[in-house]
């Protein structure tokens, strides 16, 4: 049984004041998320990711198709006891503190007050907000609210965690705390559906990804199997001289020097990095990192969707 199942899911929104007309936000999306899987749900802005997330917790109702979580319809109250949800840019009542909010939500799950208090303290500590737990939420930064949002999504030790852009609005420290939390969810065997428009987040955290474009599922599978094109290479080196860089022929696309002596060299796809690496090492440079630079999700969508439309036109 899939932990999350979307079956021919379609959602239209009526727009316009006088003459209302339907605009499709999701069109026949079918997708299974297996138990224990961390699925990256990716797409550019407006692709339909947030709409899907809202359908999964019945903030929206489907136009057609169905949504199942843990084998039950999305609106089932019993299922919600086993699900955690973080909306995009979460907002909360301004008059409460993070601790009070989490205790309130804990009580809605049916936890006794001491248990709710204990869970709230543990989670606020886990997201790095222990010292700020009594600060009114209206005085919290966006990043702090995001972390409170992550904490409230995990309050009930959920089997299924739905996270809509969990790393958005976080500073470096916050990103690290939340990333490590997400990795621990993966290790604990929880099912996670992580929506993001940032490919690197999914690369680091997800076992499989699904890509949404213009309301349709454009691709699903392991990232390596999706056929994202490598656009070039990014090489990070230390102890390299300007003469060595100049000697790379033809010249690299871009060279950025940091104050600490590191140098970031961008190479086009047409330049295999191995000979350059060997040359730099011979000259005494230290290689710190070499990473392929994939095409962006937007580029992938344009290529995939445009390709599909061309195929359809040719067939029609």
């Amino acid at each position: 049984m899939a932990a999350v199942r979307l079956l021919a899911l379609t959602k239209d929104f009526d727009i316009g004041f006088w003459r209302r007309r339907p605009v499709a936000a999701l069109q026949g999306v079918t997708l299974d998320v297996a138990p224990g899987e961390v699925l990256g749900y990716l797409g550019p802005n407006g692709a339909g990711k947030t709409t899907t997330m809202k359908l999964l917790v019945q903030l929206l109702f489907p136009t057609s198709g169905s949504v199942e979580v843990l084998g039950r319809p999305a609106g089932d109250v019993a299922v919600r006891r086993r699900v955690g949800f973080l909306p995009e840019a979460p907002a909360f009542g301004d008059n409460l503190s993070a601790e009070e909010l989490l205790i309130h939500y804990g009580r809605l799950f049916g936890f006794a007050a001491p248990d709710a208090r204990r869970r709230a303290a543990r989670l606020l500590d886990r997201v790095g907000l222990d010292a700020e737990r009594r600060r009114p939420l209206r005085r919290c930064s966006r990043g702090m609210r995001q972390r409170v949002g992550v904490a409230q999504a995990l309050l009930n030790d959920p089997e299924v965690v739905l996270l809509d852009e969990p790393l958005a609005g976080l500073d470096a420290l916050g990103r690290r705390a939340v990333r490590s939390l997400l990795l621990s969810l993966r290790e604990e065997g929880r099912t996670v559906l992580l929506s993001s428009h940032i490919l690197s987040d999914a690369e680091a955290l997800c076992s499989r990804i699904a890509i949404l474009a213009r309301g349709r599922l454009a691709a699903a599978g392991r990232l390596a199997d999706l056929g994202l094109e490598v656009r070039g290479w990014e090489l990070v080196v230390a102890g390299v001289t300007p003469a060595q860089v100049a000697a790379i022929e033809p010249a690299p696309e871009r060279v950025t020097r940091a104050d600490d002596g590191r140098c970031v060299i961008a190479l086009p796809r047409s330049r295999p990095p191995e000979p350059i690496l060997a040359e730099l090492i011979r000259g005494g440079a230290r290689i710190l990192a070499l990473a392929p630079q994939h095409e962006t999700l937007e580029e992938f969508f344009v290529r995939t969707v445009a390709g599909r439309e061309a195929e359809r036109e040719a067939a029609g």
Binding site: Q58, P87, G93, L108, F109
Partner: peptide, 16 residues
């Protein structure tokens, strides 16, 4: 609460 979207996290809890 609907306008501020603070109702989203509430409605995802086991409440009708």
């Amino acid at each position: 609460e609907v306008e501020r979207r603070s109702v989203y996290t509430l409605l995802a809890k086991p409440v009708r």
